[in-house]
Design a protein around this nucleic acid. Structure first.
Lengths: 251, 251
DNA sequence: CAGTAATGCGTAAGCCATACGCAGAAGCCG
DNA sequence: CGGCTTCTGCGTATGGCTTACGCATTACTG
């Protein structure tokens, strides 16, 4: 009755991701493999965005019919999860001698690198708390960075969510800008300038003194210093975490 | 040639949101109004999630044909933007005498309240930097909270993105959990417990010492204290901002 | 060498967004 | 007041999407 009995009561997509399902050895040889499907889907997403990933398109790229894919994947959502998993490299091995702060910085920066290399990742809606192998691996990695801080377990989770959320959010904004740019065919610099112009048309110094000041300051004129802005925010977040740790950590 | 000339070069959806487009007075009286359409769409999203919002469904709920809607809305994406706008109340008027920290706390909490009251909001993918009236209004509000901090304009923007991103991210996680719960028909508590059980099946103490410790600590047993967790993270973020301000603010 | 189970895939049902064009209604101008 | 213009609602149609189902075919297993 229920789905393939893999011992756990896991949803099929997770079971697949954890490699708990074995292919049977009975029928004809499969023409494809899960890996080839996922790789192709990732390639399409990288080239044209996630919204371009459809079962017909993936199948066509692989030279098979649409429905063949469903012999490997239970549903499209499953494919999306597997794509995320495939695009996420293993978590780094942190230097145990390094300070928690250096470790968290590395954790954050490496995650950011992944997002920037796969901006389509951020266009996949969240499906729930982290439960795929790589997600758990990164979680473990983050926890290990905080192991010696004396924080309560609950606080560690909160810190990870805080820092991870910051990274994700910053990248998501970039990703949305990237998607908008891709659609409009402008360059990033044009886009920012266009945005500044739009804002200046819509706002008035009386009703929007703060926004006007920002516009006048010329901050929105050049798209340089993305990294600086990220590091700025990261430092800010970690300062907050440091304050928490010094205070003696959340009981 | 180009779209309706509203003076600015704005995309149609924004022009509509800012009320820059007037309905002509020539033909027959419209049966509907933009407001009624948006309200109905919001009601559907609140009841069944954004993915349930389709043009046919909205039209049916209003008792008109599908294509009638396109007399009021240029495309579905436009409707989604208008829905966001409709669900966002005006930004609060901050007490000018309050400290920046108290003001930012209020700013963050009120935003969180909006998200929690409209969890479907977080399932709409970001479309770009804030450019609708309400978004600009909230941005102005946030800037006013930071007016007396001595921060550089650029730093103010970063802080808003930091705090706003934190709020958004925390709510987005809640929203994804909500969506998962809605789909599976479980209660929130069951869901969390199920998650803990899944994790404990998939992890081993050797490979995942940190995760194991978290599981053993029983943190994932009760779903209470959402607010506490939010306040915890917010305090952390604002501590970081405070450190920045005391340091003399980002030149 | 059966039998059985797994394969690829065709068909089709039921969603969706939206381009286009037409009949008729409401305002405007002479 | 008559005609022209403009705008309305909506029917039709196209081309996308996901995915349920069933069929012929293939290759292991006993």
């Amino acid at each position: 009755m229920a789905q393939a009995d893999d011992g756990t009561g896991l949803p099929a997509s997770l079971a697949t991701a954890w490699g708990l399902r074995e292919r049977p050895s009975r029928g004809p040889k499969p023409t494809l493999s899960l890996d080839r499907i996922v790789d192709e889907a990732v390639a399409i997403a990288a080239a044209d965005g996630v919204e371009a990933v459809s079962m017909p398109r993936v199948a066509k790229a692989l030279g098979v019919s649409t429905m063949s894919l469903y012999r490997y994947v239970g549903a499209k959502g499953e494919l999306l999860i597997l794509m995320q998993e495939a695009a996420t490299p293993p978590a780094p091995v942190l230097d145990p001698a390094a300070s928690w702060r250096a470790s968290m910085e590395r954790w954050a920066r490496e995650q950011r690198k992944i997002f920037y290399a796969n901006l389509w990742l951020l266009r996949i809606p969240l499906t729930g708390p982290p439960a795929t192998p790589r997600q758990v691996e990164w979680m473990e990695c983050g926890l290990s960075a905080l192991a010696d801080t004396g924080l309560a377990e609950e606080a560690k989770l909160s810190v990870l969510m805080l820092v991870g959320g910051y990274v994700r959010n910053e990248a998501a904004v970039m990703s949305s800008i990237d998607a908008a740019i891709r659609e409009s065919g402008r360059t990033p610099d044009e886009h920012l300038r266009e945005y500044a112009r739009t804002l200046s048309v819509l706002t008035t110094p009386e009703r929007h003194p703060g926004v006007t000041r920002v516009l006048d300051s010329g901050v929105l004129q050049g798209a340089d210093g993305e990294d600086d802005e990220f590091e700025f925010g990261l430092a800010c977040v970690l300062d907050g975490v440091a304050a928490l740790i010094e205070r003696g950590g959340g009981s």
